[in-house]
Design a protein around this nucleic acid. Sequence first.
DNA 1: ATGGTTGTTGCACAA
Length: 256
Amino acid sequence: MRIATWNVNSLKAREGRVEEWLALRTPDVLLMQETKLSDEAAPVLPFRMAGYELAHHGEGRWNGVAIASRVGIADVSFGFEGRGPDAEGARFVAATCGGIRLISVYAPNGRALETPFYAAKLDWFDRLIEWIARSARPDDALILGGDLNVAPGDADVYDPLVYIGTTHTSAPERHAFGELIAWGLVDLYRLHHPEPGRFTWWDYRAGNFHKGLGMRIDHLLGTQSIAERCVGAEIDRDARKGKLPSDHAPMWIDLA
DNA sequence: ATGGTTGTTGCACAA
């Protein structure tokens, strides 16, 4: 079973590339973020033609998350029910696919440390952790995936010195990521790739992708039973290449 | 990297 996550940076702009990628990499489930679509505009029919059911949660313009599955999709939940992250836009959708509880999240960016947006980001993580602790157990088969907008360690950025005093690497953000791990989630990419310098996002500007100036901020975290089944993990850098890519690469894991 | 890009029910602003 292959589970993938991808911040597509507009599913409208990326629909063709996403469909090509589904055919190429054949994930059973794809978690998406930043669809930037309303539910009415979600491309349910094209996904169905490709063999995937789509659960979408979005208000259009900004944010928006989705889960596409070809192994069934049930018990769709928007998680915070309007009291948390959804106050800042649609950032959470959960569903059960192929016997696994999956959550697709898009964490707030945070913008800059001294802003209310950063405080809201930390608050969002608090509510995410609360939701998980209340709604799931560490011995469930559960995967939390998406754009967490946190590089959990110095190995997850091209140069730690560049990020001093910025978001994505601050101690409180890394602490929030650590709380997810402490609850019982395993960083499934790191399980297979301990090496530094593996990134999922590169700024569009300044040729950063080609210079290797990126960060690992998209994640697939799984409970212990998932980690035990996880036989591989890859970031698809190729999908960041070519004409009009997302600024994020997709990542996937394979489960036995 | 104090920005060279890309996205948006765009026409500034978010990332």
